[in-house]
Simulated assay, not measured.
Amino acid sequence: MNDPASSSRDKYEALVRAANKHQILLRDASSGNGIDRHILGLRMAYHRLQPLPSETPLTAAEKTAIEEFFNDPILAKSTTFQLSTSGLFPAYYLSHTGFGCVVAERGYGINYIIEPKRIKFGTEGKTFEVGKGTDVERFEMTLRRILAELKAICEESNDISAGDSSRL
């Protein structure tokens, strides 16, 4: 998308491929098959479940190996989502949606509602120190700019003139 040598058509085709992949990953995650769901399930089982009476308790070496796994820096990074998004059912208002950031430091949260002729967003950002970390205004301006660019790419690639809603 950032390559100036790429045509609008190239960018549109990349967008379509990304959207198709996103749909597959969304279905997987929605049905409990996202990798983060499995890791969360393993973590919860380890911390909350006791062995059954017929099972041997974990050894100290097994507990150490499990703790090392859950404390691995790569795992921590891969399960710390700086951006968390959620699509909401069609509605007129974004208030009282109960959605937000999942990390307390430099995290962003977006909920969105897709309507026939517009997309509504609710955004938030968190940081421990005021003035350091998130910048929700800049984030929203960037989001608007990118969506406008994507709209132009889609219109150009599908031979739709700006403002022509007859082919939507």
Rank of each mutant, 00 (worst) to 15 (best):
S86E: 04
K63E: 14
I66K: 12
S86I: 08
N71E: 08
G163I: 01
C101H: 09
T123Q: 09
K63L: 09
D135V: 02
G87S: 12
R43W: 02
D28W: 04
G125W: 09
A152D: 10
F89A: 15
E105W: 03
E115M: 15
E105S: 08
G87H: 03
A18R: 15
R145T: 11
S6Q: 14
I146T: 10
R27T: 12
L52N: 08
G125Y: 04
E149H: 07
S157M: 07
I39Q: 04
V16Q: 11
H47L: 13
G122E: 14
E156I: 06
E149S: 05
Y93R: 15
N33T: 01
P116D: 05
E129Q: 12
G122P: 03
D135Y: 00
K77A: 10
S54F: 07
A61W: 05
M141N: 13
D164C: 02
H47S: 06
I110A: 10
K77V: 05
L15F: 13
M141G: 02
L88G: 08
G131K: 06
L52I: 00
S54P: 00
M1D: 05
G131Q: 06
A104K: 06
F69W: 07
S165G: 02
C101Q: 14
V103R: 03
A148C: 10
S95N: 14
G109V: 13
N2E: 12
T64C: 04
M141W: 04
A29R: 05
P51K: 11
H47V: 02
F139D: 07
A65K: 06
V130D: 07
D28Q: 13
S54M: 09
I110L: 13
E13A: 01
F99N: 13
D10R: 12
S95L: 15
R27E: 09
A29F: 10
I114H: 03
I119E: 01
G100N: 05
T134Q: 00
K21L: 08
Y12C: 03
Y92Q: 11
M44Q: 04
S8F: 08
R167Y: 08
I113D: 02
R17V: 03
A19R: 15
I114K: 03
T59R: 10
D164F: 01
R37F: 10
T59D: 09
L147C: 15
D3G: 11
F81R: 00
K126T: 07
P90T: 01
L83I: 14
L150T: 00
I113K: 09
P53E: 12
Q23P: 01
P4S: 12
K117S: 15
S78E: 14
A5W: 12
A162L: 06
R167C: 04
A148T: 11
T56G: 04
Y108S: 00
A61V: 03
F99L: 14
Y93D: 09
L147Y: 05
L52M: 11
P57V: 02
T97P: 00
L40N: 14
I110P: 00
I153F: 02
E115F: 14
A18Y: 15
S84Y: 11
R27C: 08
H38P: 11
D28R: 05
I146S: 08
S30I: 05
L94N: 07
S84K: 08
A162N: 05
A162Y: 04
A162P: 02
D159N: 13
L83W: 01
T142I: 07
P4A: 14
R145G: 10
